Structures are given as C-alpha cells and as structure tokens.
Simulated assay, not measured.
Amino acid sequence: MTLEAPETRIVDSYRIACDGGEGALGHPRVWLQIPHDLGYVECPYCDAKLVHRDFEGKV
C-alpha cells in the first residue's frame, strides 16, 4: 500500500526551499535538490511532493 503525498507543488527550479508554508506552524527551511532524471523530490519534514514543471503530469 502506498500513501499519496499530502501536497504536490509544481516548481520552476531544480533547487528549491521548503518551509512547510504555514508561517510559525511550518517547519525549518530546508533546501532540496530535484534530481534531473527523477523530476521530483519529497520534503523530509512535511512530505510535500515538489515536481519540476518539465515533469508535470509524468510523475
């Protein structure tokens, strides 16, 4: 059984920051690198799936 990511965001850069997006209720800002062959990365804090625009609809 696989679980879906709680949020999927389409981004324009392969290096992106995630802070949970909820101000003081979020999490520490982390910088994530999207692998060029995979097209997405998941945040280790909030499990958001960050998908590069080139891979939208493919992952």
Rank of each mutant, 00 (worst) to 15 (best):
M1D: 14
M1R: 10
M1C: 01
L3D: 02
L3M: 05
L3N: 07
L3F: 06
L3K: 09
E4Q: 13
A5R: 09
A5P: 01
P6W: 06
T8V: 12
T8P: 03
R9P: 00
R9K: 15
R9Q: 10
R9E: 02
I10T: 11
I10W: 07
I10K: 04
I10H: 04
V11N: 08
V11R: 03
V11K: 04
V11A: 00
D12S: 12
D12R: 13
S13G: 01
S13V: 14
S13H: 11
Y14I: 10
Y14K: 08
Y14Q: 09
I16F: 05
I16R: 01
I16N: 02
A17P: 00
A17Q: 03
C18R: 06
C18D: 03
D19N: 13
D19I: 13
G20D: 01
G20H: 04
G20R: 04
G21Q: 08
G21S: 10
G21P: 03
E22R: 11
E22L: 15
G23M: 00
G23W: 04
A24D: 14
A24K: 14
L25D: 10
L25H: 14
G26L: 01
H27Y: 02
H27W: 06
H27P: 07
P28A: 08
P28F: 07
R29A: 15
R29Y: 12
V30C: 01
V30I: 10
W31P: 01
W31Y: 10
W31E: 15
W31R: 12
L32H: 11
Q33L: 09
Q33E: 15
I34Y: 05
I34W: 04
I34K: 02
P35G: 02
H36W: 08
H36S: 15
H36C: 01
D37V: 10
D37N: 12
L38Q: 15
L38K: 15
L38A: 02
L38N: 02
G39H: 06
G39N: 04
G39V: 11
G39T: 03
Y40H: 15
Y40M: 09
Y40V: 02
Y40P: 09
V41P: 00
E42S: 07
E42V: 14
E42A: 08
P44G: 03
P44M: 00
P44V: 11
P44K: 12
P44A: 08
Y45L: 11
C46G: 03
D47Q: 13
D47N: 15
A48S: 07
K49F: 09
K49W: 00
L50Y: 13
L50N: 09
L50V: 06
L50C: 04
V51K: 00
H52G: 08
H52P: 05
R53I: 14
R53W: 06
F55Y: 13
F55K: 00
F55L: 10
E56P: 09
G57D: 07
K58M: 13
K58Q: 07
K58E: 15
